[in-house]
Nucleic acid binder design. Structure first.
Lengths: 161, 161
DNA sequence: TGAAATTCCATTGACGCCCATAGGATGGCA
DNA sequence: TGCCATCCTATGGGCGTCAATGGAATTTCA
């Protein structure tokens, strides 16, 4: 079962029911439910009106990095507050649904439907229309920029770096 | 058992009742009550108007590793005195509540409500409004520093090894 | 013996868990 | 090859349990 690398792909739009529950796409679920916490860890995106989601392992790894007990230094503190403090553990119910907290829904402007957008190692949750706009903009920009954007063709081998 | 190392996430605001009791969030409690001391160990934060909280195991580890924790051993001494000396053990009552000592409450400016903020391996207790202010700053700074906040991705094996 | 604190019990509202249904996709079988 | 049975996902709703909270009862210490 672990043959599948943890990758979140594609976009799924699911309904938010009266009780605030949303089905997490089955393919996402397959990845998430293998982890030590069976559910989603969600934080508000720092840059968009969206929710960032991932498995808890991502946060475990993060915590390892700042594991030191350092009451004096507060550099990590901002960090921790922005990340750990804002994070929510959203456990799956029997059917693989989660309940997204009010403040996160508000942050993303989600009401009726939620769009799960795979981002590889993580995923985002958007209000479908906002996502559409955002995508349109992105395409638009890409089009506009393409004219100006002369991608220098690599003269020779030129590896990345 | 090291797989599920204590991880404190999210923020919970609970009420302080007339007798000074506060419910510790159930998710935090689940972690804390497994430890050798069933309760919270609290010290005043040295940098903010907040209370630093954790399980007792963290202090045990600190006590053990105090020598190699930091090369400056004289500072260390002050350090450990400041920490251990000011630490309070706050046992859970039957319902998972603790009573925060007066001086800690005063230090954090807590009166009606207490905000438990997950910080990864530990957590903090704030006066909700003070926290909101501080959070705004933290998020701001985190945005700026975002580039530096690379979450280490697993080599590729994905395995929690 | 009084004040403070700890233990016990009661309430309420949210959440977890259970079951039920529909629609789509899959595979089996004729 | 076409139809049907089956499985799974997404969705809805009911209900029991637990978390958070309040207060009373009981204990402890000065």
């Amino acid at each position: 079962m672990e043959a599948a690398l943890a990758l979140f792909l594609s976009t799924f739009v699911n309904k938010v029911d009266r009780k605030g529950r949303v089905s997490v796409p089955a393919t996402f679920r397959a990845v998430l439910s293998q982890q030590t916490f069976s559910g989603v860890v969600a934080i508000p995106s720092l840059v968009s009106a969206a929710i960032e989601g991932s498995g808890i392992d991502r946060f475990e790894r993060l915590a390892e990095g700042i594991d030191d007990f350092n009451p004096f230094s507060d550099e990590h503190d901002d960090f921790s507050k922005a990340i750990f403090g804002k994070a929510h553990q959203l456990p799956f119910d029997g059917e693989g649904r989660i309940i997204i907290p009010e403040n996160l829904l508000a942050h993303a402007g989600i009401t009726e439907h939620a769009a799960f957008v795979g981002q590889g190692r993580s995923f985002q949750i958007w209000e479908p229309e906002a996502l559409a706009q955002r995508e349109a903009e992105a395409v638009d920009r890409a089009k506009r920029d393409r004219a100006n954007l002369k991608i220098p063709s690599p003269p020779s081998g030129e590896g990345a770096s």
